[in-house]
Design a protein around this nucleic acid. Structure first.
Length: 710
DNA sequence: GACCGCTCAGCTTA
DNA sequence: CTAAGCTGAGCGGT
């Protein structure tokens, strides 16, 4: 990494940026460590009324008792409510994230996680959210600007004002990101900003889904979420820079252009060339910072390290950028690329390609730094001259785009997966095959088990009373408040139109067997099986693991934890008898709290107790996947996981059963190992260390590794 | 500081 | 499934 940045430093260091107070050029991959503490200020209080599954939904629908809501971080007095069955550890004393996000998925060995606590009061997991100090003026300005600008919007409907900040709580929203952190990010911040962005985007989708079709709807939740994140300052890396953006790693994937805006990877919301005008001593020339190659036209080059990029302009109509009607001019982005060719500075390249998992959508991969090697003009198909730029990838960087290209070939059958042991380890039990792959050693596969895709409840172990199914004739619709299943979900449809979980909850209620809605109802996500192309693969030092060929969006359902449900007594007996079971899922363990939903207050309709994440488990559940299970039994523990589990309830055979469904915490690039937090056994049981509960040394490799798990 | 023009988005519908 | 229509956000430039 050092050498990458060292090469041309001397050539560009003499230029000064416009409008920034700090030098714009990074000193290398290491951004100054400002000890960012991610702004996860809210500790789930973990105390919620214990209610039986069969309780009427109205019980949770009644008007919230606002007096009941503790300020963030304040514990509800003990004894006030029943103790939770599932407990959460408090954030660690440094105040840093109780649970950080996976870092360094590309294995470049460079951890940009700050990890230490910021001491200037911006974040403190123990106190109430600390207000900004010394930034009130800029904050005021920002909010005023945004609201005055937005209010002028043409549609005078009340609807149009829903998301703009001139009323309600959002005007009072205070970003937890300090001015320093707004300028320069790190891995934790980047992940926080991205997770918040997408949570907000999903929530806006959810709200819009409930509206009537022809009312004034927001079709672009991505833009709206991006706009809010930008103006409310839930963003980072605002300082424009050449080269490495701290916290953004090669191989990171994005599903919206706005995501690259909010983390400072690529500023324009639509344009493909990001550039900056330098007010140098000599000349004032634009210089290219990053480009987005949209993949709309194939780059004829075979090598994934070379990119031919077309200039902008020339009256290209929006559909086919390949066709320039008039000549492109050497201005704006084109001029910047030309100057960057002369200067030889590195340009960030983001490559887009079709995402086959979601209709009509694209995935963008940050492919690292390139250099512009040459430029020329070409006559476009409609006669206009176009600029062309040949960019070559700086060597020594981890693979990113090429990985996606390779996977594409596997899927198209143009090349075969190396190390393939078994094409489908489920023997057809899942709709999509799950490959078994070993590129590491000679192991032929995991120990024998029965592939079973769901939960086995033993007869003697009945759980809950049946709940009444909904009466919807066709697929349940988000806006339909008559749907009893939607009522159970507090009036909110848990999933977006393409089946992505909107927010994390104590319990998600899906439609079940007695619901009259068809199997394709959108409220049956977790019960309709794996949709992601998975492979079980041999890890270097942690046995078998699970990963995906697909790019996974945050909130995507991965799989449920299948296996045999065992009751607490049996569980204890097995342990006493010295039986070992490494395939236990146990809700009673101690889990790190973490925040997944968007920052409350970003939307005006947020009520004070919205987004308070309370995940105490209403009923203990122990699952063993030792003898029978699905792909979930291969997911390893991670102290910085990219997958979390969400309790889901639905009815089968006239009884409601609790299931454990895994969802993606964040966007997960292909072939990144999936991990979740195994939690830690309660101390009293951990003392009984010879049986099922054996603490294990953790090899997850995260900078936040606790050292052990289980 | 407000406004204008530019753009390899992303939806929606035919 | 492809094509076309259409409303955009943030930025540089004025």
């Amino acid at each position: 990494m050092e050498s990458l940045n060292g090469i041309d430093k001397s050539r560009v260091l003499d230029v000064k940026p416009l409008r920034t107070l700090m030098p714009v050029f990074p000193t290398g991959a290491q951004a100054p460590n400002f000890g960012c503490m991610p702004p996860f200020g809210h500790t789930p209080n973990g105390f919620s009324p214990f209610f039986p599954f069969s309780a009427p939904p109205q019980a949770t629908q009644q008007s919230p008792d606002l007096n009941h809501v503790s300020p963030p971080g304040m514990q509800t007095p003990a004894g006030h409510m029943p103790a939770p069955l599932r407990s959460y550890r408090a954030p660690n004393p440094s105040g840093a994230l109780p649970h950080d996000f996976p870092e360094d998925s590309n294995g470049d060995g460079e951890s940009s996680m700050g990890g230490t606590a910021n001491e200037d009061g911006y974040f403190d997991g123990h106190k109430d959210v600390a207000p900004h100090r010394g930034s009130s003026s800029s904050r005021k300005k920002t909010n005023r600007a945004s609201s005055s600008r937005k209010k002028v919007k043409k549609s005078g409907d009340a609807d149009a004002l829903i998301f703009v900040g001139n009323k309600g709580s959002s005007v009072n929203f205070v970003s937890l990101i300090s001015p320093v952190q707004l300028e320069d990010g790190n891995r934790e911040l980047v992940n926080y900003v991205l997770v918040n962005f997408d949570a907000l985007r999903r929530r806006i989708c959810q709200i819009e889904d409930t509206k009537e079709k022809n009312t004034d709807t927001i079709k672009r939740a991505d833009l709206k979420a991006g706009n809010i994140a930008m103006t409310k300052k839930v963003r980072t890396n605002m300082r424009r820079r050449i080269g490495v953006v701290p916290g953004v790693e090669i191989g990171d994937i994005f599903f919206f252009r706005m995501e690259m805006c909010v983390v400072g990877l690529h500023a324009p919301s639509m344009a493909g060339i990001d550039y900056m005008t330098l007010k140098g001593d000599l000349e004032k020339d634009p210089i290219a910072l990053s480009i987005v190659s949209s993949g709309g036209y194939e780059d004829e080059t075979d090598s994934s390290d070379v990119l031919i990029y077309s200039g902008q302009g020339g009256n290209t109509n929006n559909k086919d950028k390949q066709v320039a009607v008039s000549d492109q001019k050497l201005e704006r982005g084109n001029l910047a690329l030309e100057r960057s060719l002369q200067r030889g500075n590195e340009v960030r390249v983001i490559r887009g390609l079709k995402d086959d998992t979601t209709l009509n959508s694209k995935v963008y991969v940050y492919d690292g730094l390139y250099k512009i090697q040459e430029s020329w003009t070409e006559r476009g198909k409609s006669g206009g001259n176009m600029f062309k730029y040949k960019l070559v990838r700086v060597p020594g960087q981890p693979d990113a785009f090429s990985v996606l290209q390779t996977i594409r070939k596997w899927k198209d059958g143009l090349s075969s997966r190396a190390g393939l042991v078994l094409p489908d380890l489920t023997s057809g039990a899942e709709r999509i095959p799950v490959s078994l792959v070993n590129e590491v050693d000679n192991e032929k596969g995991p120990a024998y088990f029965t592939y079973f895709p769901s939960l086995k409840y033993s007869k003697s172990f009945t759980l809950t009373q049946p709940s009444l199914g909904c009466k919807c004739r066709s697929a349940c619709l988000p806006g339909d408040m008559n749907c009893s299943c939607i009522q159970k979900n507090e009036g909110e449809f848990p999933y977006t139109g393409n089946g992505i979980l909107v927010s994390r909850k104590q319990l998600v209620h899906e439609c079940g067997a007695t619901c009259s809605c068809p199997p394709n109802c959108k409220n049956r996500v977790s019960q309709s099986g794996v949709k992601v192309r998975l492979e079980v693969f041999r890890t270097k030092d942690r046995g078998w693991g699970l990963r995906s060929w697909d790019s996974i969006r945050a909130g995507t359902f991965i799989c449920e934890y299948a296996g045999e449900v065992i009751d607490e007594v049996k569980f204890k007996n097995k342990g006493d008898e010295g039986e070992t079971d490494d395939y236990i899922f146990d809700t009673r363990r101690d889990y790190d709290s973490f925040k997944w939903n968007y920052e409350p207050g970003l939307l005006d309709e947020d009520s004070p107790n919205d987004s308070v994440e309370d995940y105490s488990i209403p009923y203990p559940l122990i699952i063993s996947a030792k003898n029978a299970g699905n792909v979930a039994r291969f997911i390893n523990h991670g102290c910085s996981p990219n997958v979390f589990w969400q309790p889901v309830l639905y009815e089968q055979n006239n009884q409601s059963f609790l299931h454990i469904a895994f969802f993606a915490i964040r966007h997960i690039p292909p072939l990144t190992e999936l991990t979740y937090d195994y939690g830690i056994s309660m101390s009293d049981e951990a003392a009984n260390n010879n049986g099922l509960h054996r603490k294990k040394k953790c090899l997850c490799g995260s900078s936040k590794c606790r050292g052990y798990f289980g």
